[in-house]
């Protein structure tokens, strides 16, 4: 296992302001025992609503936050006790819009951080040039532009470039595509995908973008209020929710009557519309996929209708998200 989180707990102590001067201590339970694993070369998505504890988890794994209890290991190294070693093997990206010096160009910023990472000058020069190409920053003419003049897309690319400077086996990326336009977010996704698949890098990736999670992640962890509430491949998760798939049936019938509409609606829980040419459109929800489908179809056939087409709409990952996180 590349990343292993074992029962992580974290509380933040904050102050609740009462008026201008007085305040009250407040405890925020950000993580209430979070455990998960990420295997070598795997891309795992950490999904959850705002305030669920994603960034808190990410910070613990990045050696930037010490948990109250529990342990986390990166390639077998403890993130608290062996923080220095962990820091050498992880590449992190924590925000898109900040994290660089505004008065340095993109390239200079990378030079600065390579020095901090202890990289040899020759190596880092080559690496930076390679990353500028890889992330399309050279193409965008952003290499020698001051960071403060960067667009959000350029900032995100530079941030991923920094995460890759050390050529780390493990990448921890917190909402790397937040607010980006399609070309930039696609660039980042494609790169992350190829890093995992071709270079066997392990990736923990948080996002709010369901589409992205679905196409990118091998596995998804759903976190809500500091707890992992579900885990699995996107397909597994979809199968696990009781939420109904929607089916759309188009059928034909010679005799056109309004009665038929009511008759079908009485038999199944759905909406029926009949158009002038006798086409009957039925939209219904299925409780369980297989059984419900044949039941509905059986009922329709029993009414003497000709079934023309059946379309089954899968629940989306968003449905999964809503199901597990809104209670």
């Amino acid at each position: 296992m590349s990343i292993e989180a074992i029962n992580l707990e974290k509380k933040y102590l904050t102050k609740k302001r009462i008026g201008l001067i007085s305040s009250e201590k407040e405890v925020v339970e950000a993580l209430k025992g979070v455990s998960f694993e990420v295997g070598d070369g795997e891309i795992v998505g950490l999904l959850g609503p705002n305030g669920a504890g994603k960034t808190t988890t990410v910070k613990i794994l990045s050696t930037l936050l010490i948990p109250d209890s529990g342990r986390a290991l990166v390639n077998g190294l403890d993130v608290v006790k062996e923080a220095k070693k962990v820091r050498k093997i992880i590449g992190i990206m924590l925000t898109v819009e900040k994290g660089f010096y505004g008065k340095l160009t993109g390239k200079e910023n990378l030079e600065y951080f390579s020095a901090l990472y202890g990289l040899k000058k020759d190596f880092s020069r080559r690496k930076i040039s390679e990353l500028m190409d890889l992330l399309g920053l050279r193409e965008l003419g952003a290499e020698d532009k001051l960071f403060e003049e960067y667009s959000l897309g350029m900032k995100a690319r530079l941030s991923l470039a920094r995460a890759l400077l050390k050529d780390p086996p493990v990448l921890i990326l917190d909402e790397p595509t937040l607010g980006l336009d399609p070309p930039s977010s696609r660039k980042i996704r494609e790169l992350v995908m190829s890093l995992a698949k071709e270079e066997d890098k392990t990736v923990l990736y948080t996002t709010h973008n369901m589409f992205e999670a679905e196409i990118l992640c091998d596995r998804i962890l759903l976190i809500n209020e500091g707890e992992i509430v579900a885990e699995g491949t996107p397909r597994e998760l979809k199968r696990r929710i009781p939420k109904l798939k929607t089916i759309e049936i188009i059928a034909k019938n010679e005799i056109r009557t309004e009665d038929l509409k009511y008759e079908i609606e009485r038999l199944i829980d759905g909406r029926v519309s009949i158009s002038a040419d006798g086409t009957i459109e039925i939209k219904a929800k299925l409780k369980t996929y297989e059984k419900g489908l044949s039941e509905i179809l059986g009922k329709i056939i029993s009414l003497g209708l000709d079934i023309v087409s059946v379309k089954v709409e899968e629940p989306t990952l968003e449905d999964v998200f809503v199901h597990f996180t809104s209670e």
């Binding site: 990045s62 050696t63 930037l64 820091r87 924590l94 900040k98 505004g102 901090l116």
Partner: peptide, 18 residues
């Protein structure tokens, strides 16, 4: 202010030399 502190702190460089 710049948001660079997480990257500086989590760099493997020696804080005192830094």
């Amino acid at each position: 202010e710049m948001g660079t502190s997480p990257y500086v702190v989590s760099s493997p460089s020696n804080p005192i030399l830094r």
